[in-house]
Amino acid sequence: MERFKEKVVIVTGAGSGIGAATARRFSREGAMVALAGRTADKLEREAAGLPPLRTMTHAADVADPRAVDALVRAVLDRFGQLDVMVNNAGIHHSGQPDTTTDDQWRAVMAADLDGVFYGCRAAIPHLEKTGGSIVNTASVSGTGGDWGMSAYNAAKGGVVNLTRALALDLGRRGIRVNAVCPSLTRTGMTADMMHDEPLIAKFTERIPLGRVCEPDEVAAVIAFLASPDASFVTGAMVAVDGGLSASNGQPAQG
């Protein structure tokens, strides 16, 4: 299956986790892929297994709008067009609201929300030319609250409604905008949690499919949303959560 043959895709946060899995997925489906992230070495390691003529890396901090603009220019210089923008980069901070510092709050907002807006804004004129699409990585933490994660919840909630607003603004310009909302996923960001068996048991008890999500499973949904198979889908928040959001929060009976 080569749904993205001769298409150009940017994936931010592509040095690990969901971003790396997404870059691999698009590449397998024939795309020319630009892996973007803050750490060049991580990007190069992920790109090493991909076809060199269809792959590039570019170190950029999505919290810096000038760096995001430079990323898009570099991709256009290399591949000549842009068809899909995947805004996946993000960070996480846990803590009580009254102990969250200004710097911690701003760092999460800058990476998780500002960076998504900058990526969308930089991509729009080029996606308009190709009839392309945007897929943002939101979270179930953007559709409901968590304990001790106020900054992350606020940022991901912003991504959710930004995605909806952009779908309205850009639909008549031929650009679709959607988001994925994963639940707990096995990535470097969650590695410490994965070793805490009692904690993981609490998570999996709440998830109808009974396990955590794998990055490839999120990547598959991102690829679907960016593909012609989703040609009449825009403004959607697709839960990739094993059924977690289907629950009203009450415990299982029996």
Results as ranks from 00 to 15, higher is better:
residue 254 G to D: 11
residue 129 K to D: 08
residue 68 V to D: 02
residue 161 N to Q: 10
residue 24 R to D: 04
residue 39 T to E: 14
residue 142 G to Y: 01
residue 38 R to D: 12
residue 243 G to K: 10
residue 8 V to C: 00
residue 254 G to T: 11
residue 57 T to H: 04
residue 218 V to G: 01
residue 253 Q to G: 10
residue 97 P to F: 15
residue 253 Q to K: 11
residue 3 R to F: 01
residue 29 E to W: 07
residue 74 A to F: 00
residue 25 R to P: 04
residue 189 M to C: 00
residue 164 R to K: 14
residue 179 A to P: 03
residue 59 A to V: 07
residue 22 T to P: 01
residue 139 S to D: 06
residue 220 A to F: 04
residue 137 T to H: 05
residue 218 V to D: 02
residue 238 V to H: 04
residue 42 K to Y: 06
residue 5 K to M: 10
residue 169 D to V: 14
residue 196 D to C: 04
residue 45 R to A: 15
residue 91 I to F: 05
residue 242 G to H: 11
residue 220 A to I: 03
residue 148 G to H: 15
residue 34 A to L: 05
residue 8 V to Y: 00
residue 59 A to P: 12
residue 188 G to H: 05
residue 233 V to F: 10
residue 92 H to G: 13
residue 1 M to R: 12
residue 186 R to T: 11
residue 108 V to W: 03
residue 57 T to G: 03
residue 186 R to N: 09
residue 54 R to H: 13
residue 209 L to W: 07
residue 211 R to L: 05
residue 47 A to E: 08
residue 69 D to P: 08
residue 196 D to M: 03
residue 102 D to A: 12
residue 232 F to S: 10
residue 100 T to W: 00
residue 31 A to N: 08
residue 232 F to C: 14
residue 172 R to E: 14
residue 81 Q to W: 09
residue 252 A to P: 07
residue 128 E to D: 12
residue 64 D to Y: 01
residue 228 P to H: 10
residue 43 L to Q: 13
residue 127 L to E: 00
residue 229 D to L: 08
residue 139 S to V: 05
